[in-house]
Amino acid sequence: MIIEFQNVIPIPLKHELSFSGELWGKNVFFHSRENTLLDAYSGKGKTTFTSLVAGLRFDFEGNILIDSKKLQSISKNEWSELRKNKLSFIFQDLQLFEKLTVQDNLVLKNNLTDFKTENEIKQLLEVFGIDTKWKQFCGTLSLGQQQRVAIIRSLLQPAEFLIMDEPFSHLDEVNTIIAFKMIQKHCSENNIGTILTTLGQNYQVQWDKRVQIA
């Protein structure tokens, strides 16, 4: 899969951006066989990037193409299909169901494609040390625990891209490393390309591509 940005300028940021970076107003390709780091300070459009690729917002100038198809011409059913089978996300605001248990949050996503067994999901929780939270309501978890649940949920589907918007913002260093390794393992096993937005960290990893947003 190829995600292509052609001179894209988010309309709400039009007068705030300097366009000196490598994303907004430029032609940029993201290949699903690559791991890309999107690096920027706050307010430069990292979350906007995730929202645009997820089809949540269409307030931009220029063109965004997914496999040569313009974003606006993708039907709602096609979006559902993309989100189910090709594009996986970790949103900055986590997008969990607070009134549901950890189990229900994860099972709901997993059941869309029957990607993993219940045991495999529990093993992922165990790696993060939150396997005892299986029956606990997400709303009662700490932000760090919720972020780990959101990370695991993003791994419960087939995908060509995993797009992560500051996915470790609520994790300590140890859990960040655990999470990063878990994601790396999952993506390399399933040939999934990653796009990670960050506030300057590179997680001591060699990235295929590094895009500076400004």
Binding site: L56, S80, E81, L82, R83, K84, F89, Q95, F97, Q157
Partner: peptide
Amino acid sequence: YEIRTMLRLGVLI
């Protein structure tokens, strides 16, 4: 919020 989230996860309308 819940409906939006489900749609973002890939649940069909």
